[in-house]
């Protein structure tokens, strides 16, 4: 019987180049924005990434006003962080129907792009990603470090769009955080589109 059962596998703990932190934001209006932001956990192996992902709620099950953020260790998921303040984000805005059809698979694909360093030599420019669950339409964004680095930003945008499987004629825009923070009106101008 002992011979028939397979040997216990030793997992080698596959280790991607970066350690990542997963954050959770829950909109409690009685608290400050900072107080609502919580670090859930960090991981630096593929096994620990999945142990975390498999353990937490899917984005589509979160209450409106909540966010998940995945950022490289040492970068806080806010514009003001030293690594984010000269940067921006590729923003994907979803309609209400897409919460059911696309949100969870788009967010997982985003996580896989980050953890898997999908952006080739420009992966160093990636800071993290955020998913916002909102009644008026959910959003997913990939944050990069430098809005002036055209080559890195456009490469990241093209790869990201391809990985999500978005149709060619659908465009996504990249906005700097400073523009988003200082916008007047409901839309921020795009520095780049793909």
């Amino acid at each position: 019987q002992r011979a028939a059962s397979p040997p216990r596998q030793r997992f080698l703990r596959w280790r991607p180049p970066n350690r990542w932190s997963l954050w959770f934001f829950k909109n409690d209006k009685s608290k400050t924005w900072q107080a609502n932001l919580r670090l859930i956990s960090k991981f630096d192996t593929v096994e620990d990434f999945w142990a975390l992902y498999n353990h937490i709620q899917l984005s589509s099950n979160l209450m409106s006003g909540c966010d998940y953020s995945l950022f490289k260790d040492g970068i806080e998921p806010m514009w003001e962080d030293e690594r984010n303040k000269r940067g921006g984000r590729w923003l994907l805005t979803l309609n209400k129907q897409q919460r059911r059809s696309d949100l969870d698979r788009f967010w997982l694909e985003t996580l896989l792009c980050l953890v898997g360093e999908a952006f080739d030599d420009h992966s160093d420019d990636v800071c993290g990603a955020v998913v916002n669950i909102r009644t008026k339409g959910d959003k997913i964004a990939v944050w990069t470090a430098d809005y002036d680095n055209r080559e890195a930003v456009t490469h990241i945008g093209r790869v990201y769009k391809e990985r999500l499987g978005l149709p060619m004629k659908m465009t996504i825009g990249y906005q700097s955080h400073t523009d988003t923070a200082t916008k007047s009106g409901s839309t921020t101008k795009n520095k780049f589109v793909v």
Binding site: Q9, V46, F49, W50, E117, D120, R163
Partner: peptide, 20 residues
């Protein structure tokens, strides 16, 4: 080039015992 982890490689770990 830099080391990448292919998505299918990563997905292959999702339901391994160490990950659940």
């Amino acid at each position: 080039g830099k080391r990448q982890y292919d998505r299918d490689f990563l997905l292959g770990f999702q339901f391994m015992p160490a990950c659940i």
